[in-house]
Amino acid sequence: MYDVVVVGARCAGAATARLLAGTGRDVVIVDKARLPSDTVSTHGLLRGGVVQLSRWGLLDRVFATGAPAITQVLFDIEGDSKVRRIKQRAGVDSLVAPRRYVLDELLADAAVESGAELRTGVTVTGLLRSDDGRVAGVAGHDANGGRVELPARLVIGADGRGSRMADLVGAEKLEQFTSPCAVFYTYVSGLAPDTYAFHIGKDTFAGVFPTNDAACVWLIRPTPLLEPVRTAGSHRSKAFVEQLDLLVPDLGERVRAGRITERLRGTANLPNYRRRSHGPGWALVGDAGYHRDPITGHGITDAFRDAELLATAVDQDDLPSYQGIRDVMAREVFDLTRALTAFPAPERFVELQLQLSDALEREADTLASFPELTALAA
């Protein structure tokens, strides 16, 4: 009998497992994927995510992987560019955008160092329940098809946007809308390694997040306007650069001067939702419980925030407080996401971005003030 089974070993799951194992609980993490492995992500951490890594003693490890320290931000509004230095706040003075195969493995390793057990290649297909219906563990199979049963006092679903755990526990969506936007991104070498770049134009939001060995270059637009890229088949990378040339000429020129190192990736019309995220013997964290369109670029920080909120609630034996605090902290950014995905005129888009920046800075201050979890008394 484990204290906690965490289903999903990426950002949210590994961070939650590390925090709970650090309090002395017997934790096992399972994931059907092998680590390290990649996943869809534009990588950028804003201040709150960096604050969490710093508080957890992991920020220097992230920089040691070769993910560069971001010390300035370029804002380009319809061709008018300004560069701002990142100021010291909430204990950090830089940002970072690690590749997910780097970050997820680093977090999983940190969880194991804290005492968690990690089992990859395990697919969860069902739940174990006690006589009164309470969730009491998970069942599934390993990579060889062998039966796996893991009884636990608490099961945490951290298995992403298409969460099987959310389906198994019947977690209803409390609020939802579908984004009308599409995002495409690729990796380009030769771009400035110390600068986040944001470009805003009519029905256009593009940017650059320097990451390990290259930079993630992304473009977000209303989905119908990206049909030239979506329908380009094997020529999608070429079509992507042509869109940058047309919409953000300066960025298109820099991409052409560099070298595209990987295939183009993308997605469209993503679901945005808040789910009920706790019940008898279970909880959800990360995208399994709460998801937004990447236009507000905050998914990894959401995962880190909610990992700490959930671990604290478990430590205090007060799961309802987790969802309540999460929903309050996520409210403003969720509403701003809805407004931004509507792509108002550039002037209004900039106003919303300024509101978003202020909201994220205040969130970083709150995260920096969280008390540290301590080990259980022997």
Rank of each mutant, 00 (worst) to 15 (best):
F240A: 03
M329C: 04
R25L: 15
D38C: 06
T195I: 05
E361F: 08
G299E: 00
R164Y: 09
V27M: 06
H43K: 06
D315F: 15
Y322H: 05
L168A: 06
S321R: 14
V30N: 03
F198K: 00
C181W: 01
T71N: 08
E117A: 15
E227W: 10
I29H: 02
D93N: 14
G137R: 04
L270I: 15
T267Q: 07
S237M: 07
G299K: 07
A364W: 06
G286S: 08
E308K: 10
A303C: 15
L103T: 02
S37T: 13
V255S: 02
P151W: 09
T267E: 04
L45E: 01
H141F: 14
L251P: 05
F349I: 00
C181R: 03
V92N: 03
R55Q: 13
G157M: 07
L35K: 09
D132K: 14
P280M: 08
A158Y: 02
P210N: 05
R129P: 07
G160W: 03
R129L: 11
H278Y: 14
E332A: 13
P98E: 05
F349R: 00
L310N: 06
E253R: 15
F75I: 11
R129C: 11
W282Y: 12
K82Y: 06
L154P: 01
R55E: 06
Q52H: 11
L264Q: 06
F63N: 00
R348N: 01
A182C: 06
G299A: 13
G252W: 07
R230S: 14
D315G: 10
W56A: 10
T120L: 10
S37K: 12
S179N: 02
N272H: 10
P294H: 07
F209S: 08
R263F: 14
D3K: 11
A97Q: 02
T204Q: 03
I260L: 07
Q52C: 12
R164N: 07
Y273V: 00
A257M: 08
D194F: 13
D142T: 07
G201E: 01
S237H: 12
R259W: 09
P224A: 12
F334I: 00
T374M: 13
S41E: 01
G286I: 09
G133A: 06
F177K: 00
S94R: 15
A64L: 09
R84S: 12
G8H: 03
A15N: 05
R362G: 13
Y273H: 04
V350T: 05
A311W: 04
V333M: 11
P344W: 04
G170F: 12
R134F: 09
G233Q: 08
K87C: 13
L246M: 12
S369R: 14
E172T: 09
G126Y: 12
S179L: 02
Y322N: 00
A69F: 12
R134W: 09
D60E: 15
